[in-house]
Design a protein around this nucleic acid. Structure first.
Length: 573
RNA sequence: GGGCCUGUAGCUCAACGGUUAGAGCAGAGCGCUCAUAACGCUUUGGUUGGGGGUUCAAAUCCCUCCGGGCCUACCA
């Protein structure tokens, strides 16, 4: 039994994520976790909320709440939606946890002791009115290059020129509008990634089979310009992991916290400690410490492409630089973006479908199927209602749902609600079994390789095989002359439903559970992962009871599609 | 500006130097009547964005032009 540690990029605490965020990390990670569990492997699937940083402080202020309270509430909101989307985290933690604070501080000390952290002084824009230092993107002004009036401190959206906040004409805070900005000298800790460049490059070069998207981004950062740059890992903020604490080997960091991107990935580890606290397990170290049992763990990370530099470089720099035996990632699966109907999803403008809204209109399996079967693996992908309607109606309702319907209803009317006895599998059945064995092997190969679209395609082909078989075996015609032969056909078909339930569970867990409950109500056949061996087609013996489930998937009507298309086109409150 | 990805049938995508470029959807025809008017079979449809080059052989490698997207280190 293999052991799989699986993490999804941790979503930022603010707001509810849209479908593009979902398909970029959490959903494919869940697919993989469910698949590996299904195969009988031991899985630790971890996710959390990323809670620190300026945006959380501002959102809390806007909501009129202390930031800790705001984050606690938003964490529950996100946890609830994740549950309702059937995301099967073993633990959904919080980067603001005591464990993460302690571990982040510990690793910083280790890095310092190993000569990889140093203090540097720099000047940054400070807003007395806001009472805070302003990240570049919170400063706007007139672009000195093109005269555009809403240029941000880091880049002009109009002429795309890279800027420095001091270049802006009439700069002001986007938080308060204050114009009394001033440059102040401030000290920060820097992670000396440049010292680790060679080590990181060697590590990246020895990774095999990583997505091009993953390695090309890592390579770019390693070699661009002067190579990998040192990175400030503290910020002048209140909300975060304090950079000054008992035992800190540096001073003068009072009132500063670690940068969210330093502490966020560390939460992957701390989350396993939270998992123990929550009473879900007893030993987190055997997942994370290679000196304590984690040397045989396969660690896979899932993320959108915007997260790749932090996972290929910064976090490994933290891990490797600590010189402690932490488990390093084995495979990084990265995704492009999902666009919405000709443009981008937009949180601020309420453009596109957000996770809560999605569940208001349809059950999770509908979304899971479409999103996964269209996952943006090789390039950006696009959600359109037309495509969504077609995929759901054809794949789920017609191919899978209708197969279940025709088999169970035919059986009920001719043989009653138990698996028919009599007859034996013949040549036609052997051919079907051989065909499916090959398809299941292909499906597994794609799932093992985390080829999400191809897996979905193969799964659909497996569903189609059932309809092809029924059509050519034609039990409704055979029944008139040879009821025993018809019984064997129906018995095999009912077994196919069970097989489909097990194979489909990673994609559509709720529907799979419904099928399994209908066709094997007492779970007599076990739920071992099917390999396509003969035994998988005889798991439901003659005489076993079953029930006819309600239609698995309702079709999306044209009127619904149009309604939703209008509803999600613009402005969310 | 730099880097990376991408352009293949009406649409969404495969094919990663080697038969005649394949699937699903959409379109056309036929069949079936168990089923959510569902299913099955057959079939139409491509100068692989343009041009040049390398090779016995190019969608695939190289150059160039055109289009789309993303990243570019202080948003997270």
């Amino acid at each position: 039994m293999a052991r799989h540690l699986i993490t999804s990029a941790i979503p930022y605490i603010n707001g509810i994520k849209h479908l593009g965020n979902l398909v970029g990390s959490q959903l494919p990670a869940d697919l993989f976790a469910r698949y590996q569990r299904g195969r009988g492997h031991e899985v630790m699937f971890i996710c959390a909320t990323d809670e620190h940083g300026t945006p959380a402080e501002l959102a809390a202020a806007k909501a009129g709440k202390p930031v800790a309270e705001y984050c606690a509430e938003m964490h529950e909101v996100q946890a609830d939606i994740a549950r309702r989307f059937a995301l099967s985290f073993d633990h959904f933690g919080r980067s603001s946890s005591a464990h993460n604070q302690k571990l982040t501080q510990h690793l910083a000390v280790k890095l310092f002791e190993n000569g990889l952290i140093e203090e540097r002084s720099e000047t940054q824009m400070y807003s007395p009115t806001d009472g805070r230092y302003l990240p570049d993107r919170y400063i706007e002004g007139t672009c000195p290059n093109c005269g555009f009036e809403s240029a941000r401190g880091d880049q002009c959206d109009n002429c795309t020129k890279q800027l420095d906040p001091v270049d802006l004409i009439n700069p002001h805070s986007t938080i308060s509008g204050a114009t009394d900005l001033e440059m102040r000298e401030t000290k920060h800790l820097y992670l000396l990634q440049s010292k680790m460049r060679a080590q990181l490059e060697k590590w990246i070069d020895t990774r095999e089979g990583w997505p091009v998207l993953t390695t090309s981004i890592a390579k770019k950062w390693l070699t661009d310009g002067d190579g990998l740059q040192d990175r400030g890992i503290t910020r002048d903020l209140n909300w975060g992991v304090p950079a000054q604490f008992d035992g800190a080997p540096w001073s003068g960091m009072d009132g500063k916290v670690f940068y969210v991107w330093f502490d966020a990935p560390i939460e992957y580890i701390a989350c396993a400690m939270e998992w123990v606290d929550a009473g879900k397990g007893t030993d987190w170290e055997r997942w994370w410490r290679t000196d304590k049992g984690a040397e045989d763990v396969t660690y896979t990370q899932f993320m959108g492409k915007d997260n790749v530099p932090f996972h290929t470089l910064s976090f490994p720099a933290t891990i490797l630089g600590s010189d402690e035996p932490w488990k390093l990632v084995d495979y990084i699966k990265s995704f492009n973006y999902l666009n919405y109907d000709g443009g981008q999803f937009s949180t601020s403008r309420g453009r596109g479908v957000f996770m809560d809204q999605a569940l208001e209109i349809l059950p999770p399996d509908y979304w899971r199927w479409w999103l996964l079967s269209h996952a943006p693996e090789s390039s950006d992908a696009e959600f359109t209602w037309d495509n969504f309607q077609t995929s759901v109606n054809k794949d789920l309702a017609d191919v899978l749902g209708n197969f279940v319907s025709r088999v169970t209803k035919f059986c009920r009317s001719k043989f009653g609600e138990s698996v028919p006895e009599g007859g034996a599998y013949g040549e036609q059945e052997q051919a079907l079994i051989a065909d499916l064995a090959a398809r299941i092997a292909a499906y597994q190969a794609h799932m093992d390789a985390i080829e999400v679209r191809k897996s979905a395609q193969e799964l659909r082909a497996i569903w189609v095989t059932g309809n092809e078989y029924l059509q050519s075996a034609a039990p409704w015609a055979v029944f008139k002359e040879d009821p025993d032969r018809a019984a064997a056909i129906v018995r095999l078909s009912l077994n196919l439903i069970r097989l489909y339930a097990l194979l489909s569970a990673p994609f559509i867990p709720d529907a799979a559970a419904t099928l399994l409950a209908a066709v094997d109500p007492e779970d007599n056949s076990g739920q071992a992962w099917p390999t396509g061996a003969a035994v998988d087609f005889e798991a439901l013996p003659g005489g076993a009871p079953f029930s006819v489930p309600d239609n698995l998937f309702a079709k999306i009507e044209d009127a619904q599609r149009e309604d939703w298309q209008n509803r999600f086109a613009g402005v969310r409150d």
